[in-house]
Amino acid sequence: ARLLHGSIFAKVIEGLRELVNEATWECSGNGITLQAMDSSHVALVSLVMRSEGFESYRCDRNMSLGISLVSMSKVLKTMGKDDSLTIRVNDDSDSIIIAMESQNQDKFADYELRLMDLDSEHLGIPDTDYSCAIKMPSSEFSRICRDMSIMGDSVLICTTKEGVKFSAKGDLGQGSIRLVQTTNIEKEEEAVIIEMKEAVALTFAVRYLSMFCKAAPLSPQVGLSLSEDTPLMCEFKIAEMGHVRFYLAPKIED
């Protein structure tokens, strides 16, 4: 699999590696997918990178590759910001080869990472017709998570047709941020767009939301999909290639 902009892959790894330290990458002719849960089974990440999004891609037979995201992250930190990236696995090999090429083709770096033997627990994620779908700038969402984490470790997300309200309370007191739905949309990327079938009010642990925001560099927008008593779906699209989707179980009344 070859990417002209290796930085995309680095952003994917940085978006995942706090939530899960290692994961099984499923490679097939259609591309690369990954599904993994955090250790407490409260959050899950689902990655899709379609083959047509790569500059070149070939997969002669399906492979499940156990990879340490922490190690992969360390190797990718050596990559130049404009480098292209090629990832290769030879048949019956126990390692993955990561090759980086500088833009002016004068520097070639090669790394080999040992593959891990991971037992992949797979969950069936039902297609959900969410009560509410919010689109907003990913930087805004990151900022809100950071601000709300000052006040408490849980965030209540309430949606109405006017907008969406994030609130948190704790020992210091309480705080809330309300975003009004954007009316005159000049730049889609900066708009707050809310499609609501019915109002929802759900509480989530802010530390997971903040971990999800590590994937914000992938996309200027984030999608939040909510339904009562249903895990939140938080989506960052990977341009012309796929997406990183996070799912987070809500906090419920004792």
Partner: peptide
């Protein structure tokens, strides 16, 4: 409030 688990909502395959 208690933190729910994903396995309460998604079925292990």
């Amino acid at each position: 409030m208690a933190q729910a688990c994903l396995t309460q909502y998604f079925t292990p395959k």
